[in-house]
């Protein structure tokens, strides 16, 4: 078997576009899934049972089914549910956001709950309101514990964006697999894909390690 690596170089423009799309998807997904996760986490710990239950249902649904299924599901179900025609990109983004906000909701909830009750009491004893306690005492401490987990989620998400290739979103996997199908240069393209993912993923993983170290909670 002869290998012809020129196929990779010939398609460098397309691959670069795909890589860029992967980054855009990751950034947008996280950009939406963080605020949504916070909202879901607050719903979950709220006094109103209905809100808490709604959040719980959402989280338990989307974190317990495979992402690829959510992607397919979004692709086939959203057009039935809403009268608007979404692009493949938007559909893929929605699927990713649904899944990652469910993860993030649990991350934030755990972060908030990890701050011990005595801290709340100390704030309340000073005369603070529940809101002030949350803002001044609980959230800043929770944030430090949540950041390393978010960083890990980020690294997973970066790789998981490849799953939206199944609905033809033009990110790195889709582009690379397309070129593979058209050129039959299977090994070259899969290797190239791996190398590109690795080169982009490695620095992020290192950054995530750094975040973990930097925000390690000392008490």
């Amino acid at each position: 078997m002869t290998l012809d690596w020129s196929i990779v170089w010939l398609n460098k423009g397309l691959l670069a576009e795909g890589a860029l799309m992967t980054i855009v998807l990751t950034v947008l997904t996280m950009g939406l899934a963080v605020p949504l996760g916070i909202v879901l986490a607050f719903m979950r710990i709220s006094k109103w049972r209905g809100l808490a239950l709604l959040s719980q249902c959402f989280v338990e649904l989307f974190r317990n089914i495979p992402l690829i299924l959510i992607v397919y599901w979004s692709f086939y179900v959203i057009p039935i549910l809403v009268p608007v025609q979404f692009s493949a990109f938007t559909t893929g983004l929605i699927a990713l956001v649904l899944c990652v906000s469910a993860y993030n909701a649990e991350t934030f909830r755990a972060g908030i709950n990890s701050v011990r009750a005595g801290q709340t009491n100390a704030g309340l004893a000073l005369g603070m309101s529940q809101f002030q306690v949350m803002k001044e005492i609980i959230l800043p401490q929770a944030a430090r514990r949540v950041l390393p987990i978010l960083a890990t989620t980020w690294v997973s998400l970066f790789k998981d964006t490849s799953l939206v290739s199944v609905i033809a979103v033009g990110e790195l996997s889709h582009v690379a697999l397309q070129i593979r199908s058209q050129s039959f240069r299977v090994l070259e393209m899969l290797t190239a894909m791996a190398v590109i993912y690795w080169m982009m993923g490695y620095p992020q993983a290192k950054l995530s390690d750094w975040v973990r170290k930097k925000f390690e909670v000392k008490e």
Binding site: G118, N121, I137, K218, E219
Partner: peptide, 9 residues
């Protein structure tokens, strides 16, 4: 408080 409960941040 017994355990001080200073705000660590």
């Amino acid at each position: 408080f017994q355990n001080f409960e200073l705000f660590p941040h």
